[in-house]
Design a protein around this nucleic acid. Structure first.
Lengths: 340, 340
DNA sequence: CTGAAAGCGCTTACAG
DNA sequence: CTGAAAGCGCTTACAG
């Protein structure tokens, strides 16, 4: 493989000059710069990444720690990964993807070995075991998802509380008085999926204020269980006129369940979900929803991370916790409740 | 960060000895080995990846080139990624994920810079522009998907021809005489998605042999278009008693379409798909299907790739083209056609 | 069994 | 404006 020595020789300059000519980090005569560039292109020179990383302490790689948990709905995960990967590439970074179930160990290895200049954590839990490892690492980290303790990291998440409020306000405003919120399974909460109860509590509060009845239930996060769950719930609570979904698997299963019950939205039942537009398209979901903005969150996280990596933000610059405001995408699945 | 010099000093040996003690690449007295190991653990030593890569010409990283094409159904892609990532990790390799739409450029950069020791290509097309780049690279490559020219690479794919035969044989054997095969959109074929016509041609041949009528149509690969397509097709061809799906989006949309038409499988219509079991679970698909085995294909590709990287297979060892035999997963969606 | 040294391919102070 | 040299942190022949 051709290295910078070959380029320098062919251009008739010193290796350092070739390096500077290519990087532009110090002034080089136009003549030399042109010759070096020409020769480099001709020989097809690409710097050796390991050597560069060793010399600069910059790998130009971002670690992406995703966990494919059995109780997470995988297609929803993919969108965060795409958002992170696309933004990283635009900013000149490659993505090292770790799906190791042992997140803390994987994170420690990636950071200690200096393979990555920073990391993005997906699937962040309330008490995330990866956080102590991340705080001890010299590299910065950005999270998608709100943990209990945000010190030392930049955090990006959907404003799930506002999402809960907005969903209830919307349906209450249309006149609904009997609402049902389908959340994730209980063990997602136990594992620390804070977004579940953040939305849920805000929804309950808003319901109390508006004087409407909101029942919270936990559905499975996998098929076909969630389909059975939904049938059972609609059987058990026939008074329900408005359905709120904070569970992607439930959203994906609902069209089938409604067909089976000969229900249509919004004539028989008003429905609001919480998922991304891309997800809605993939599953052909006809329900209005709070946009969960995975691409935007991924982009925000990477942008901030790169700012820290490149020292545009000093190490002691305060860390941010930024919430994306929920936006209601109207797909026409809500209306005043049917007259009785 | 602690480096091998620190470990050596703390253990009272030379850096080379520390290195050998940790790698086991030459004999070291038990006493020294133990002391080095102890000190390394105590100090939390992790080798610098860039330095090691530079010294050994091994990055311990595999490049994964995925393309999220607008006409590919993303959730199906994810499973190949998981298969590759899991196997790589088991074998001690990390994954560099590239989703760059400019595949050839991304591949060239990753290989020229020596960031990766080998690459796995997903989404391989008949005339894949990444292949010339890969053949010119010093690193080995493994493909998931069959290109027109397999020289210089190891290839793994589902046996789509056998899959086409098996689907038709199965339905013909049950007595069906009017079959409809829903393929990918035409532009997937134009782009070089050979698996589409491989299955299709084999299916047509088998149908001819068995004397049954098989109509091939192309459906959209995205929602909600594919739903409309399916309705139109079933309207246009009411004589159809057996439906074959080589289109993941169509499979995901079909349950809704059948509900809307008040059709059930297999009473009104026999259905066979071609997708993975994991996919069937995600979308709660009740149809029998030819298993597309993404995890298995990903694993096979990585295993072979690592064999080449680690020189278990010499450079001139013949490259393989290996097909996974299609397996029919019976979900009870086929039966003899309804009596007329 | 162990150590001193060279070298992987870069970048970047240090000199001029 | 340019060059010679040191150094990043490893591994691995070369000596003993």
């Amino acid at each position: 493989m051709v290295n910078i020595g070959d380029v320098a020789r062919a251009a008739g300059v010193a290796r350092s000059t070739a390096s500077y000519a290519l990087s532009g980090k110090r002034s080089v005569s136009d003549e030399v710069r042109r010759r070096v560039a020409e020769v480099a292109a001709e020989l097809g020179y690409t710097p050796n990444a390991g050597a560069r990383a060793l010399a600069t302490s910059r790998a130009m790689v971002i670690g992406l720690l995703a966990q494919f948990l059995p109780d997470e709905f995988a297609p929803a995960m993919l969108q965060y990964i795409q958002g992170v990967a696309n933004t990283a590439r635009d900013l000149g970074y490659d993505i090292l993807l770790s799906s190791d179930p042992d997140g803390p160990a994987a994170l420690k290895r990636l950071t200690d070995s200096r393979m990555v200049d920073g990391v993005v954590l997906l699937n962040v839990a309330e008490h995330d075991e990866r956080l102590p490892v991340l705080r001890a690492a010299p590299q910065p980290g950005a999270l998608v998802g709100l943990p209990g303790d945000c010190t030392g990291v930049d955090v990006f998440d959907l404003d799930f509380e506002e999402a809960g409020r907005a969903m209830v306000e919307h349906l209450a405003g249309l006149g609904h008085r009997e609402l049902l919120l389908v959340s994730q399974p209980e063990h997602v909460i136990e594992r620390g999926g804070a977004y579940v109860w953040r939305l849920q509590n805000a929804a309950l509060e808003t319901a109390a204020v508006r004087g409407v009845h909101l029942r919270v239930v936990h559905g499975s996060s996998s098929q076909p269980d969630i389909g059975r769950d939904l049938h059972a719930l609609l059987d058990a609570h026939p008074e329900t006129t408005g359905l709120l979904l904070n569970n992607e698997a439930a959203a994906a299963a609902l069209p089938t369940v409604m067909h089976e019950r000969r229900l249509t939205a919004p004539a028989d039942l008003s429905v609001i979900g919480r998922y991304s537009d891309e997800f809605a398209r993939t599953f052909s979901l006809p329900f209005s929803s709070i946009e969960s903005a995975p691409d935007r969150l991924g982009r925000m996280a990477v942008r901030q991370l790169v700012r820290r990596i490149e020292k545009e933000l000093t190490d002691d610059a305060p860390h941010v916790v930024r919430f994306v405001a929920p936006e209601l995408v109207d797909r026409g699945s809500t209306a005043p409740p049917p007259a009785r």
